[in-house]
Amino acid sequence: MVPLHYYLLLSAILFACGVTGFLIKRNIITIFMSIELMLNAVNLSFVAFAARWHVLSGQVFVFFVMVVAAAETAVGLAIIIAVYRTRETLNVDQVNLLKL
C-alpha cells in the first residue's frame, strides 16, 4: 500500500511542471498543454483523497473538472485558430492587442 503523501508529492511536482511551462513557454499551444498538466495534477490529488477518506465526492469532482477542461480546450483552441488566422503567429509575446 503506497502512502497518501506520495501521491500528493507526485501531484505537487506535476503541478510545478505545469506552472513552470505556463510561465516560461512562448508557444501558445504548449502553454495550453501546461494548463492541462496542472488540471491533471489536481485531479490526482482529488482521487487520492477520495481513496483515503473513503468518500466518492472526490471522484465526482474529477468528473466535473474533466467536463470544464473539455469545454475550456474546445473554446481555447478555437481562439488559437482565430488568432493564428489574423496574426500568422503563435508567439504570445506578439499577441498583445485585442484588435488589429
Binding site: 507526485l10 511536482i13 506535476l14 511542471c17 513552470t20 511551462g21 516560461i24 504548449t30 501546461s34
Partner: peptide
C-alpha cells in the same frame, strides 16, 4: 508521468 511531464515543457 514525471519524465513525460518534463518533456511536455
Amino acid at each position: 508521468a514525471l519524465i513525460s511531464g518534463v518533456l511536455v515543457i
